[in-house]
């Protein structure tokens, strides 16, 4: 057989390895309780049902978990953009003393394990009266997302030539107006991509959210803490609920992936 055929076979094999588990979790979540208990389990969607998913959604804490996850995710986007965009702009536009150390500091913070922050933060938030609130989780997630936001937005701003801003200022715009009228419209798609990235990070983070809350659980925290005393059907439905946004997100973000994860983020 020739080389191209081997390449095709290898690609299909990897796609199966990556794709089939996704198929299985969807299949399991969309099966009835009864067909989940059968053995061997049916490999084809012969008996689709929303029973398992509905039971999952009806479980205490799941819908509030959804709401909390959304609240935290959106709050994290807003806060990290508010704080991070100016930093990214500074890195992209100014050759200031301390730019190197600033970037180094951001990279270093990314290397800190979340767990190292979460446990002491729980005590700090307890003292500040923020413990067990979505604010606490939002603050932690913003801290996790911020370095990335700064680095991504810096890369985006570098892509808008300095000369365009200067042109705007020569033709009568103030620095702020030049930024809003000329830089922002061009940076917006990239910033939207950064925002989605931030949301996924927040949506996926489980350890910190678990440690910082008791009742105001985010969805993954709720799933994790109830894992050991839940039936398999609940776990499959939970897995599916957590995976679904990822599939959608990647479908939207394919164009930006290589730039964001591939070059900017590393």
């Amino acid at each position: 057989m020739n080389r191209r055929v081997w390449v095709q076979i290898a690609c299909v094999a990897i796609t199966l390895f990556m794709g089939v588990p996704l198929y299985f979790i969807a299949l399991a979540a969309l099966s009835s309780r009864e067909s989940l208990n059968r053995f061997p389990m049916p490999m084809l969607p012969t008996d689709p049902s929303v029973e398992t998913l509905r039971t999952f959604l009806d479980t205490t804490g799941i819908v509030p978990g959804f709401v909390n996850s959304l609240t935290v995710g959106i709050g994290t986007i807003v806060l990290s953009l508010l704080i991070g965009v100016p930093g990214g702009y500074a890195v992209a536009r100014y050759a200031f003393r301390g730019r190197g150390p600033y970037q180094m500091f951001l990279l270093l913070t990314r290397a800190l394990p979340i767990v190292v922050l979460s446990v002491p933060l729980a005590r700090i938030f307890l003292n500040a009266g923020l413990y067990d609130t979505t604010y606490a989780v939002t603050l932690l997630h913003t801290a996790l997302a911020l370095p990335t936001t700064v680095l991504i937005t810096a890369a985006i701003f570098v892509g808008v030539s300095r000369e365009q801003e200067e042109a705007a200022m020569v033709f009568g715009a103030s620095p702020l107006k030049a930024f809003l009228r000329v830089v922002m419209p061009q940076a917006l798609p990239g910033i939207a991509a950064a925002a989605m990235f931030t949301f996924v990070l927040s949506w996926n983070e489980v350890l910190g959210a678990t440690i910082l809350t008791l009742n105001q659980r985010t969805l993954p925290a709720q799933v994790l803490t109830t894992l050991s005393d839940s039936p398999l059907a609940y776990r499959f439905a939970g897995g599916f609920a957590l995976v679904l946004p990822a599939v959608v997100f990647i479908a939207i973000m394919r164009r930006y992936l290589l730039n964001m994860w591939g070059t900017t983020l590393r």
Partner: peptide, 13 residues
């Protein structure tokens, strides 16, 4: 796709 999947979700999958 797994880029956006959390480790908890991967475990459940």
């Amino acid at each position: 796709i797994p880029l956006a999947i959390s480790d908890l979700a991967a475990g459940l999958v």
